[in-house]
């Protein structure tokens, strides 16, 4: 599974990336976490506010930090 975290590098975005990595560790499966800070890439995905998170290409969260439990549920979902 591909988990993408979108954010220009502000504090909230880093927290979201950390939560995503924690969720992957808890899931026990080797999912890939990618941090995307390129604005053009965010624009092409229709992201309006950061941080945002996508699972397998689909945007699931935007404009807030999701907890690692929430991300874990999305991975298992």
């Amino acid at each position: 599974m591909l988990i993408e975290v979108f954010g220009p590098g502000c504090a909230k975005c880093q927290v979201m990336e950390k939560h995503a990595k924690e969720a992957v560790a808890q899931s026990g499966v080797d999912h890939q976490v990618v941090k995307i800070s390129d604005y053009a890439a965010m624009a092409s995905r229709g992201i309006l506010s950061t941080p945002a998170l996508a699972v397998d290409g689909e945007i699931k969260v935007q404009g807030r930090v999701a907890s690692s439990n929430e991300i874990l549920a999305l991975i298992k979902g």
Partner: peptide
Amino acid sequence: TPFCSCSAVPLFIGFLR
């Protein structure tokens, strides 16, 4: 609207588009 300055760019582009 909830807004943080790090969201300014994506929001700007999203609005214009």
